[in-house]
Amino acid sequence: MSQQDFNMDFIGIGSGKCGSTWLFENLVQHPEIFDGNPKEIHYFGDLYEQQTFDWYKGLFNGAGDKRKGEFSISYMYHPDAAERIYQHFPDVKIIAMVRDPVARTYSDYQHFIRKGDLPPDYPFSQYIKDEGKLRFGYYTDYLVPFFERFPKENILVLVLEEMQHDLAECYRRIFEFIGVEDISFLPEGVEEKRNQAVNYRFLKLENILVRCYRFMARRGMTGFAERLKRSGVAQMVRRFNAKSEPIPGMDAASKEKLKAIFEDEQLRLANLLGREGQIWTR
């Protein structure tokens, strides 16, 4: 199969900690979408010079006439991803997910602890003093390269807070955007939250799980990693390791500080999307 014979129907570009896992796992339930579509390939990011395009195509063997797509949250932030995707698939549908960057930043902080990159007692107020930790909440900066290359009608930016108000309408809109015939399909368990931060009995065990997946993803072992995830083994381990009490909430001072920092971002994003007013604080 030549590159000209191989096309992707949709590519999710991020952002991380905005519900992309939940969205992807619901999309692949649609009977017209290939349920073997892998998530977190990162090909057009860090793996582009390590793996061939034939390797990328091989990840979608068995798709047949079903819709092919992938989600790699690194694409939004990689400086070359937009151009690389455009060079291969100029007509592909681009899907991005965003959420209130204040909540996204706190979720990212919890994820750093899960990965073992931060000690569990590291203060969130100290974490947000590093401006580099806040940059992923400036969605507009990272979406612009995609809007510069792809037609606006080929880009769908979803706001997590809006999606949660009307899931049926949200998925109807997504399926219509992708181009499947049955746009009224509603995935089973769509209201179940996925990949949420929780308290763990043994944080080191969770560190190992996350680092193993990260190790495999960085070395192009995406297919194996996806099969392992879908086997349910990791979920079983996490259920065993989870505590019943919720994770502690964000302190009020840090929340107010972040709200002030990101105050203009939703207005910039609304302007990029041709919308009026607020977005996640409607």
Rank of each mutant, 00 (worst) to 15 (best):
F136S: 10
F150E: 02
D166T: 08
K133V: 14
K204C: 04
R201P: 02
V180W: 04
S184R: 08
Y171H: 13
I174Y: 00
R239M: 13
K204T: 12
Y171L: 09
A253C: 04
I155R: 03
A225G: 05
I183W: 01
N199P: 00
I183T: 15
H165T: 13
N195S: 10
V210D: 03
I208M: 11
F262N: 03
R211C: 02
Y127I: 09
G189P: 04
C170S: 14
F185I: 11
M250V: 10
F136N: 08
F147N: 04
K255D: 12
I155N: 04
V159K: 01
D141V: 12
V180T: 14
G220C: 07
G220I: 05
E192F: 10
E188P: 00
A234L: 09
K193R: 14
K129E: 15
R172K: 13
G220H: 04
K229Q: 12
V210C: 08
Q266T: 05
S254V: 03
P248S: 13
I128R: 00
F147W: 04
E181R: 13
R214Y: 11
K133G: 09
N207G: 04
G137M: 06
L228V: 10
G137F: 02
K257L: 15
V144T: 11
D251R: 00
F262Y: 15
E226D: 14
L272G: 00
L258I: 07
I183A: 07
V237K: 00
L258E: 01
Q126A: 13
E131N: 07
L167K: 12
L203A: 12
L134D: 04
H165K: 15
F202W: 12
R230Q: 12
E256P: 00
L134C: 08
F202M: 08
K204L: 14
A225M: 12
R230P: 03
M250L: 13
L160V: 08
K255I: 12
F124V: 06
R149V: 09
L258W: 00
F262R: 03
L134W: 07
L209K: 03
M236H: 06
T140L: 09
E188C: 11
R135Q: 15
L160M: 15
F215K: 06
L143W: 03
E245S: 15
I178L: 07
A197E: 01
D264E: 15
Q126L: 09
T222G: 11
